[in-house]
């Protein structure tokens, strides 16, 4: 038994040392996860409006200016598709954006990103857990960490998002919301009560998916442009 324990510890030490030797941590001014709803309520057309809207926002000169003015180290961004408690996927990995060329490169990746999750129920808690995990394990350092969760419905699967939201706040992660009132006109209240939180948290409302591009542009500008506290 002692022999096995000793070997487990040696193996874990080996993993730890290698992780530190092989990986080089990156410093940025903001880590941002864009958590995009792909549950069954979102059809292919609406999915396209979301990813094309995000891509267009990253090409906007004001967004690039905000990135360059945010502290000089750029931002790290990743897109997560999510639906029910078991369905989340990181799309295209993490990308560091420091200038317009990086932003255009990321926009191309996002615009071409296929829908990996075909549908499912809605678990905002699952999406938040996954996004928190991605931020905690991405080998990137920053003073601001934000999850930007967009959705058109409240959780109907998995645990209540409040617990995970509170975990995120405890770990210095802010959750902002982009509510799409496509299905539920009173969804804003739910997001305010149960989803968003943390330093400088805010929520924006899109009446439907046609408004998504305009809203995500405004939202990115506010998220990136927020001064370092």
């Amino acid at each position: 038994m002692g022999y096995i324990s000793k070997n487990i510890i040696i193996f874990m030490l080996f993993l730890f040392i290698n992780k530190n030797l092989l990986s080089q941590e990156i410093n940025v001014d903001l880590e941002l996860v864009l958590a995009v709803d792909v549950s069954s309520s979102v059809d292919e057309k609406e999915y396209q409006l979301q990813v094309r809207g995000i891509a267009a926002a990253f090409r906007h000169p004001d967004v690039v200016s905000a990135i360059q003015a945010s502290g000089g180290n750029g931002i790290a961004v990743a897109m997560v598709q999510w639906s029910d408690n078991e369905e989340q996927s990181l799309v295209g990995g993490w990308h560091v954006i420091r200038d317009s060329a990086d932003a255009a490169e990321y926009a191309r990746i996002i615009r071409r990103s296929p829908r990996i999750i075909p549908g499912g129920q809605t678990s905002i808690a699952g999406a938040l857990s996954f996004a928190i995990d991605e931020i905690e394990n991405n080998n990137i350092n920053s003073s601001r960490r934000v999850i930007d969760v967009s959705g058109d419905g409240r959780s109907n699967n998995g645990i209540h998002p409040m617990s995970i939201r509170d975990n995120a706040i405890d770990n210095n992660i802010t959750i902002n919301g982009l509510v799409i009132l496509n299905e539920e006109p009173f969804l804003g209240g739910y997001f305010e009560r149960s989803v968003i939180g943390g330093h400088g948290a805010f929520m924006m409302v899109a009446e439907d998916y046609r408004d998504y591009a305009a809203m995500i542009l405004q939202k990115l500008l506010r998220e990136i442009g927020l001064p370092v506290s």
Binding site: L49, R52, A56, R210, A213, L217
Partner: peptide, 10 residues
Amino acid sequence: DVNVQWSAIQ
């Protein structure tokens, strides 16, 4: 207006 432009593109 950039949002009008984007709607026209779409």
